[in-house]
Amino acid sequence: MSDRPRRSRTRTARLAIAATAVALAAGDLACKAVAEQKLTGGRSVHLGLLDLRLGYNSGAAFSLGAGLPSWVVIAVTGLITAGVAVFAWRAATDAPWPLLVGLSAVLAGAVGNLVDRAGDGLVIDYLHTGWWPTFNLADVFITLGAATVALAVLRSPPARDSGA
């Protein structure tokens, strides 16, 4: 039996992961650039439940590590991002598509925030609820992607024991 269909599926899955992550990260970075340009001087746009309000975060999620040197935050988030990328690359061989979509979203968000932080050690945030820390589209990708990964794992059938 040929291994060709499996290799083709793996190649297709890896390409889809990379293309999705790049497209989503680019969209995130574009939104950050627009927010930084349009929301200067304390300008805020009220959209109902959500406001557009410019903020900068020197830390990771919920400003964790905000007091650390930026190179430490960049190094740690870079390592985590690389870990997610390696995991997604390896999972592409046989993981279900919902899991790969979730990993793509997590990777996109991580890359978007890492690229944004690389310039000056800060991440641009612009989505504000008033009751939750200000966040950005990359954070949404990470959160929804992680939820998708969790649901995909919970819904997957248990692994069979190949037992000895």
Rank of each mutant, 00 (worst) to 15 (best):
L99M: 11
R11L: 14
V22S: 09
A19S: 15
A92N: 08
A108K: 07
A82W: 05
A60W: 05
I124F: 03
R14C: 05
N57I: 05
Q37K: 15
V140P: 00
G41Q: 08
G48D: 02
G67H: 03
D120I: 10
A23E: 07
L68Y: 09
A25T: 08
G59I: 06
A66Y: 06
D28S: 01
C31T: 15
Y56A: 09
T20R: 01
V84D: 08
A118T: 09
V111Q: 06
T10H: 02
P98L: 13
W89T: 02
N113G: 11
A21L: 12
L137V: 00
I17V: 15
T10I: 13
V106P: 04
V101K: 07
L15K: 08
A35K: 00
R43W: 08
G55H: 10
V34Y: 10
A66F: 04
K32D: 03
R11G: 03
A105G: 09
V106T: 05
V106L: 11
L52G: 09
D28T: 01
V76Q: 07
S58P: 10
F135W: 06
A85S: 01
L107R: 04
A92Q: 00
D51K: 12
A19R: 09
A35T: 03
G59T: 06
E36S: 12
R14S: 04
